[in-house]
């Protein structure tokens, strides 16, 4: 392309072509973030379930606290690799999606901080940490649904909504019995596969298709 004058028809065609080309660039690499968190949460849930089953002892739920530590480290590495390979633009969609996940992560972090302070100052028993489990079941589904709405991806929306419904089922169970059994880890693993792993693969497949 050069600096040359064009006629009105060419101008219109050029504007249309450039805008539609840019639209196809949406959310490349965002599927990887879903996959990192999705596989990590699924693996950790299955590991906690298996260890609890083998040792026949409780208290292994604390292993879940390794998820944010590992997740943020791996997600940062993946994001760095993606940005090295791809110098794409920052889209309004991408910015909105980041903002949504930022709010959800902050809510999760804020509740964890409240629990930590409660534990340190002995303001309640360890039971308050169960809320983390419920937030972990509900928030990813909400985030995935919102991502699907922004990207206009019906399949991603459906996955998010299904994840939320699974979360609601466990919320009802928790309110009914106020206890979390080891089998809930299997529910968590299922919710993570539906809320994060499947949408991650869908987003990556769509991005690959758009760029082929």
């Amino acid at each position: 392309m050069e600096e040359k004058r064009i006629n009105e028809q060419e101008s219109l065609e050029l504007i249309t072509r450039m805008i539609s080309q840019t639209k196809q660039e949406s959310a490349i690499g965002s599927g990887n973030v879903f996959l990192v968190w999705g596989y990590l949460c699924t693996f950790m849930s299955l590991a906690v379930f298996a260890i609890t089953l083998v040792t026949k002892g409780g208290g292994w739920g604390w292993l879940y606290l390794a998820i944010p530590l590992l997740g943020f480290a791996i997600a940062a590495i993946v994001a760095r690799r993606t940005s090295k390979k791809y110098n794409g633009p920052t889209t309004y969609q991408g910015k909105s999606i980041n903002a949504i996940w930022g709010v959800l992560s902050s809510l999760f972090g804020a509740y964890a901080s409240i629990c930590l302070v409660s534990t340190i100052f002995n303001w309640g028993d360890a039971h308050v940490w169960s809320g983390m489990f419920l937030l972990g079941l509900l928030l990813p589904g909400i985030g995935t649904y919102a991502t699907g709405v922004i990207l206009k991806e019906g399949q991603v929306q459906s996955c998010g909504l299904t994840g939320c419904i699974i979360g609601l089922f466990f919320l009802r169970e928790f309110c009914n019995s106020s206890a979390i059994s080891p089998s809930w880890c299997l529910g968590m693993a299922l919710a993570m596969v539906i809320s994060l792993v499947i949408p991650g693969h869908i987003l990556n497949a769509k991005a690959k298709q758009a760029n082929s």
Partner: peptide, 28 residues
């Protein structure tokens, strides 16, 4: 009303920001 400048502006219209390498690739 110039091919390259209009192409750059059309790209930037649809995104929050774009870097030089991306604009160079897209506008060839």
């Amino acid at each position: 009303h110039s091919q390259l400048r209009l192409a750059v502006m059309s790209i930037l219209l649809g995104v929050e920001q774009a870097d030089f390498v991306y604009l160079k690739e897209k506008t060839e």
